[in-house]
Amino acid sequence: MLPQVTPAAPGVRTRPARRGPQRGQARAAALYLLPTSVILLGLLAYPLYQLVVISFYDYGQPQASGAAPLVFLGFDNYVTLLGDPQFWDVLAATVVFAAVCVVGSLLVGTALAVLASRANPLPRMLLFLAALGAWATPAMAGSYVWLFMFDQDFGIVNEVLGLAGHSWTFERFSAFGLVAAEIVWCSFPFVMVTMYAGIKAIAPEVLEAAALDGASATRTATSVILPILRPLLMIATIQSIIWDFKVFTQIYVMTGGGGVAGQNLVLNVFAYQKAFAGEQYGLGAAIGVVMTVLLLSITGLYVRAQRRTS
């Protein structure tokens, strides 16, 4: 799993600019920001530039090894991609799949946070243990355990349910559902811990006041607690969207690289299959560019949400 990233808003309390020679300050800034800038430019910006360049060429294995000359295609890769019904199918599947995972993680994470905030120490400890486990488990290992539990022949789930021989990954929706369940299982800790911290931070006086005013439990939850938690919920939602839109490992492992006849492909795995398995680096790069643009639009929302909450 990628790091649980919800950076706080940039600090507002910043030292006012010192009245000094502009040049000296610029030099200091450059010095402090240099290492980060070099790494980001060298390892993210330059490859991104390369990606855009490659997406305009017919770039396959012969070109990569230098055995054939590069042929400039212009927007042909993009035209091919946008004219490919499979691309639209994969895009739609990605959006729906991500939406299901996001809603699932939010519901489960929030429910467990509420549960943990009210339960006795023992179940609370067990719930946090589950969260810690999910946090610490590589996506890889989690996917394999789930695959094993739901195995057609020797899986424990089929044994318990009496479904010997039933394949959970053969049918499209069942396969997507299984992967979504695994993703919710491993990504709820972020939502749970965030919401738990939020619930614990609510001042008891606020709840007492609501109780004094005669608010019912439901009314307190919807009119008092929810509005207070909204900013946290917002960040958890957008962060989940970003992760679940980029899912790679779980689909790659659990559906064997995209499922029967590619029925379980999501964009990230699709790009990988085209570029690296199909050795069509140009077309794969075009998919990468399209994906990056989509994710950048989501980031735009993220930044706006952050600035509103800060």
Partner: peptide, 11 residues
């Protein structure tokens, strides 16, 4: 944060 290894791998 939006960029990811699978997308940037060719580059």
């Amino acid at each position: 944060q939006m960029l990811q290894p699978t997308v940037l791998a060719s580059g």
